[in-house]
Amino acid sequence: MLVHAAPYSQQGALSALRFANAVVERGHRLSTVFFYHDGVHNASALMSPPQDEVQLADGWKRLHREGGTQLLVCIAAGLRRGLVDTGEAARHGLNSHSVEPPFELTGVGQLVDAMLENDRLITFAP
């Protein structure tokens, strides 16, 4: 699954998570979610939505915990938008980080590999 949509700004992110849950419930394997474009914001460990709203970050992490879905974030798109893990924060001299496991910063080559290795790729744009 490829997610271009930012959380809470656009329906695409929530639709992607709902679709992901439905896919898993039907017994399919969802190997990878790749976050690109504004979708990288879904990987922010600092998201703090009101309690009575959908908890998108929890939803993504549950996919990983329960089904082993990889949560991959494009590093180039992420760095530009302030999505950095501890390693990248140190490398760029930043005093905080915003991405934590199970989200992984990775290259866009992983998207291409995932696309060619899996039966289906579904894209969620804004």
Partner: peptide
């Protein structure tokens, strides 16, 4: 994406 895929 195009350039990375081609590079791979």
């Amino acid at each position: 994406v195009a350039l990375v895929a081609a590079a791979f």
